[in-house]
């Protein structure tokens, strides 16, 4: 349905954006390019036929932009007010500069595109694993979304390992950034948002929270799942930071909650998948049991991701405000 040249155009644009990011030296511009690049990545995933990954990428793009820009802000605040390196604003640009800036990325994009076209698979591809996954998932795991079935059924250990990585990251950030001595007297003020902005963000925050819950609960039927829904619930807390200017959250309680949720999700996965609880059930109860299992696992993963990203965000933003 999607015209093929359009897909190629998006992919070429993608490579072009990557080259732009690599060639740019100014930090804030890189932030914006990165945001656009992640949006394009998300669109490319979508056009290639995987809306779940595209959703995760879109939400992750927004979050990485927030984290990077907060880090950049902290880094700028840490700079000493010494003699800065001289900058000449009226620097004469050499004649061939635009050639370097435009033609070289275009050439690179063209070469990469030609290679992509040359190496794109033609003829028969061995796909017995794919057909096995796609035909068997409804019996083995249940649900209607094959991606959710795969990451909660066949590949549940991958999912748990990723969750473990996120837990370790959050623990490291929360404990390493802990300090009571950094209480600076000169508190940093961000720009106060206007009244209209606050009102709109208030309305949007409710939509975001509802949408996150919808994504989690409906994860096994439509596109979506625990990770995306958890990111959106974390985005709700980001909105709360914007509205009420809240700077202290009970981070350690959230951390404890995240650990408990992670441990219980591991327990559930071990009981259901590893010990094979589904084999001992009568066949007529199986679909309901599978549905309940997927909803519970999605809920656990969503809660864990929401806790983790909220802790990360609050620690990044309010590190010097304790």
């Amino acid at each position: 349905m999607i015209p093929n040249p359009m897909l190629y155009a998006i992919l070429a644009l993608w490579v072009f954006g990557a080259v732009c990011i690599l060639r740019e030296r100014r930090n804030v511009r890189v932030m914006i390019y990165l945001f656009i690049f992640s949006l394009l990545t998300s669109l490319a995933y979508f056009l290639l036929g995987s809306p779940d990954t595209a959703m995760a990428e879109a939400a992750i793009g927004a979050f990485t932009t927030i984290f990077f820009i907060v880090c950049f802000e902290k880094y700028e605040a840490l700079k000493v007010d010494g003699p800065q390196p001289e900058e000449s604003p009226a620097e004469k640009r050499p004649v061939g500069a635009w050639l370097k800036r435009v033609v070289a990325p275009l050439l690179f994009t063209a070469v990469i595109g030609a290679l992509m076209l040359y190496f794109s698979p033609g003829g028969e591809v061995v796909d017995h694993l794919k057909s096995q996954y796609l035909t068997q998932f409804a019996q083995d795991v249940g649900g209607e979304n094959a991606v959710t079935a795969i990451y909660l059924g066949y590949r549940v250990y991958d999912t748990l390992f990723e969750a473990l990585l996120l837990v370790v990251t959050v623990l490291a950030v929360a404990h390493m950034s802990y300090s009571t001595s950094l209480q600076s007297t000169k508190q940093k003020r961000y720009l106060k948002p206007s009244v209209v902005e606050i009102a709109v963000v208030r309305a949007i925050a409710v939509v975001i929270l509802l949408f996150g819950v919808y994504l989690i609960v409906n994860g096994h039927i439509t596109a979506g799942g625990g990770f995306q829904g958890g990111l959106f619930i974390a985005a709700f807390f980001v909105c709360r930071f914007l509205i009420h200017n809240i700077h202290d959250l009970p981070v350690y309680k959230l951390l404890r909650l995240e650990e408990v949720v992670f441990a219980s999700s591991v327990l559930i996965a071990v009981f259901v998948i590893f010990l094979g609880m589904t084999y001992h059930l009568p066949a007529e109860h199986l679909p309901m049991f599978q549905g309940v299992y997927m909803v519970i696992m999605n809920f656990m993963i969503g809660m864990k991701v929401a806790c983790g990203f909220t802790i990360l965000f609050y620690r990044y933003v309010t590190i010097e405000r304790r």
Partner: peptide, 20 residues
């Protein structure tokens, strides 16, 4: 759903970039 997610996350990202 994906389009709605796209709109909302773009909004939040833009908000933060402008703010900082």
């Amino acid at each position: 759903d994906y389009a709605i997610i796209y709109a909302l996350s773009g909004f939040i990202g833009t908000l933060f970039i402008t703010m900082f």
